[in-house]
């Protein structure tokens, strides 16, 4: 027994088991069923897109922050890659996906100072860039052209070249609703048997992922619940007023990117509020913006912009909803 080897540190000497990489990899784990479902509906091309997006994000992370090696092993770049891929349409050219990954990490994360410092959700920022840069490609919803193992020709388009392949284009339920006022049935929305971005179509899986992430306390339940409640209640009001022109609440909740946005994008720890009441303000804000853009905006879908706008408001929300410190006047 000697005191030569005593370790000195300051209390607390105990440490909870949760770690930042652990949280990130659990999110990746929860995304696996969603990725598998996307390849089931859209063919192996979906897996290729996901792989390209992940590689692009991780490479960018490594390139811009070579000294902070943790940025790769912490899994946050992988999440951004998967989420970016899940918001892209099937048949989206791979070179565009690659650029999307560079922008997502480069402009969405490292430029702010890396993990934890960014204001906007990196995956959504990457997608917003793609939507601005390639508006046609990102709104072309190709149906799988045959067997599971076939990769769509449009995916393999050379950079900056027009794809020559003929594709069977379909419309998403939201576009059909917006322009033709026809509502897709709820069962198809739940099971994912519809057109749309890779990861957003299968409602059941996303709801299960939400339950999982809430139960392991990685996401705060207040955010998805407040978003879904707000969208549901607002759209119910309009549906009751004029059922011919406005979609039903269940359609609003299950269609488009609302579920994946509410479960994975809006709940991004870094870019969402930290205060208890701030979570509700943030979620309700997203819900209102989604309904506004979908019902009266020029675009059929508004989840991406709704979340990015509320991301921008997050520091302000945190500031004005700060909790009263114990022992101060109420």
């Amino acid at each position: 027994m000697s005191d030569q080897k005593l370790t000195i540190s300051t209390s607390p000497f105990l440490k909870d088991a949760a770690t930042t990489p652990g949280i990130m990899w659990k999110v990746v784990f929860s995304l696996l069923p969603v990725v598998i479902a996307s390849s089931y509906y859209f063919g192996v091309g979906a897996l290729v897109t996901t792989a390209v997006a992940i590689i692009s994000c991780v490479l960018t992370e490594w390139f811009f922050s070579p000294r902070s090696a943790y940025s790769i092993s912490d899994g946050s770049g992988v999440i951004t890659g998967i989420l970016l891929a899940m918001t892209l349409p099937p048949g989206f050219p791979l070179w565009m996906t690659f650029i999307g990954g560079i922008v997502a990490i480069g402009m969405g994360k490292t430029i702010w100072g890396g993990l934890g410092q960014n204001i906007f959700n990196p995956a959504l920022l990457g997608r917003a860039f793609l939507q601005a840069a390639f508006p046609t490609a990102i709104t072309t919803w190709n149906l799988p052209d045959g067997a599971f193992l076939d990769v769509q020709a449009s995916q393999l388009a050379m950079p900056f070249m027009q794809s020559q392949a003929d594709v069977v284009s379909s419309a998403t339920p939201l576009a059909v609703m917006k322009f033709d006022k026809v509502e897709t049935n709820t069962w198809d929305l739940l099971t994912g048997n519809i057109g749309g971005s890779l990861g957003e179509t299968c409602g059941i899986l996303l709801i299960l992922a939400m339950v999982y992430l809430i139960s392991v306390k990685i996401i705060k339940w207040q955010i998805p619940v407040s978003i879904l409640l707000t969208v549901g209640i607002l759209s119910l009001v309009f549906y009751l007023l004029d059922a011919n022109n406005y979609p039903s609440p269940q359609f609003m909740i299950l269609s488009g990117g609302l579920l994946i946005g509410a479960v994975y994008m809006a709940t991004d720890l870094v870019t969402s509020p930290i205060t208890p009441s701030g979570l509700w303000i943030y979620g309700i804000g997203i819900g209102i913006l989604v309904v506004l853009i979908r019902l009266w905006g020029g675009l059929p879908e508004g989840v991406m912009y709704a979340i990015l706008l509320m991301n921008a408001a997050t520091p302000l929300i945190n500031r004005y909803t700060a909790v009263r410190t114990y022992g101060y006047k109420k």
């Binding site: 440490k15 410190t325 022992g327």
Partner: peptide
Amino acid sequence: RPTKIYPCIKCGACVDACPMTLNPSK
């Protein structure tokens, strides 16, 4: 004991732990 310190990811775990309802993250 963990040796690596990661950046704050604003998860709010400390905010939900502080008995004085301070904002340790900030």
